[in-house]
Every structure is written in C-alpha cells, then in structure tokens.
Amino acid sequence: MAAPDRDETSRATIVRVLSRRRNTLGVTVGPGAVWIVLLLVAPLAFMSAVSFATIENFQIVWDPTLEHYYDLFAGGTTEYSLGPVGFTTTAFEEAIMLSYAIATVATVLCLVLAFPLAYVMARLNDRMFKIVIYLVLLPFFTMYLVRAYSWVLMFGQNGILNQVLGLLGFGRVGAFEYGLLPVIVGLTHAYFPYMLVTLYASLDGLDFTLIEAARDLGASRFEVVKDHIIPLTMPGIVGGSLFVFVPSVGAFVTPQILGVGKVQMIGILIENRAIGEATNPATASAASMVVVVSVVAALFLVFRYVSLDELGGV
C-alpha cells in the first residue's frame, strides 16, 4: 500500500504506541475512567460534602454541620401508634415510606401482569413473536413523558375513563380522580415494558422439555410453576423488579402530573428543595444522600442473588 509518507509514519507511531500494553490500557480504560470520575464520583462526593455544609445568603459556606440530616428525622407531625408505643414521623420520613410503598405495589403489579405475557411470548413462533415484540418495544421506546402524560387524559374527574363510564350510563368513579391510584397505574404502565423484556429474556432461555418432563412425571401445574419455572427465571424476576422498583422510588413526573399535589413522593420533595421554592443545596443534598444510601443498600442485597452480567448480559 503506497500511502503518503507522513501518513505512514503517524500510523506507525500509533501502532507502536498501541503495541505497549500499558498504553493500550491507558487508551481503552482512560476516557471512560476520566468521565466516571469527573461526572459521577466527583458530583456524588460534592453532593455528600454539600449535605454537611451551611448555606448563608444562598451561598455554600464550608462550615460542617449535621443539622440537615437531623432535620430530616427529628420532630414531625403525623402521629402513629403501635399498641402502647406512639411516635411521629416527619414529612421526609412520610415521603420515603410513601415512595417505597408505591414502588413496591408498582413492582408487584408489573411482575404479576407481565409474567403471563412474557411466558406467552417465549412460546410464540418466530413470525408471531416478531409482531408481538414490536407491539411491546414501541411503548418501551416511546418517551417516558408521553406515557405518563397519556394517563393525564385518562384519569381526572372528567377524564376519559369517567367520560366513558358516563356514556355507558354509570356514574363517575371517585377513585379515577387524580391522586394515589393514577400515580400507581402510571408507574406500573411506565415500567411494565422493562419488567416484561427482562422476564422474557430469562424465560427465553428456559428449556421447556424439562417442564414437559416434570408434567409427565405427575407434577401439578402449580408445582411446575413453583419448583421449576420460578427458580429458573429468578434472575429475570429479580432484575426486572430492580428496574421497576429503583426508578419508581425516585419518580418525579408521574406523581407530579397525576397526583395534583396530594402524593408527595421523595422525588417531588427533593425537586422542591433543589430548584423549587425551598431551594437549598444543603437540605436537597442531605435528602438525596439518604436515598442514595437506601438504594445502594437495596442493590447490595440484590447483587447477592444476581450478578451484573445476568442483568445486562445478552
């Protein structure tokens, strides 16, 4: 190949440089590592530092304090009693509990609703599968915001659900007004495809002849599901649950547009402290750090059962 000299030499230089292991490592690891350190590690470290800082005149003053964490948990107004023990919770604690409760319900709903469809998909022939997966992937790729917005039209006192009920001669249903139910439905709908696709991936690898064999040996349908299908698809169940649960805990748009200010999940509380009325980098950071820690703890538990590869591996 008669390339121009200059080109050939620079090319040779690159080849020579790359042929050293250290350099190759530098080139391949380097950019990603720099990005991760500058845009992930540093911001999280900065946020954790700010959560201990003092804010004066809307400026960060590096005067360490635990006050912002103390305020998250101290005092409170909502009263509960467990038998003889009474206690009160703060708005932050309420928001955390509400977020975890809503995320749990959404995850269970996604799991129960998506499993049968995933199972059917795993057993479809190729042509049918391609059509169904297209119908599943289209909402999957459609903007989250559009999917959340679609329920704004459906719910509401005069939303489409109530309009249709009215046309059919029924009365309005109060539960269809904006609030808790629409938020749960919105989240379930939003993350349903994630659960479905993850479940499908693990069901797809399932050896159905094993299941037939178990049936032939007299196992009941329930036993087959309990003893074979569920254990074999456990990585998909855990992975899918993770993909629904974690983002649901941090949800903002869905409770914001479907909750009419009555469903204060943790994402809404943090947004208000970060860029809303109560703007205060320190209190916003403290609340965020608690969420980070709780999510990391959840992930740690999950990764004892599934590896990252199983989540992401093809």
């Binding site: 305020d71 409170g76 703060t90 708005a91 928001a95």
Partner: peptide, 12 residues
C-alpha cells in the same frame, strides 16, 4: 427552615 418543613408536612 420551620416554614418550609411545615409546608412539606402539609403536602405529606
């Protein structure tokens, strides 16, 4: 601080 946490409690 009291004012904004009162508002968070109203919304909770």
């Amino acid at each position: 601080d009291a004012y904004f946490s009162a508002w968070e409690e109203v919304k909770a």
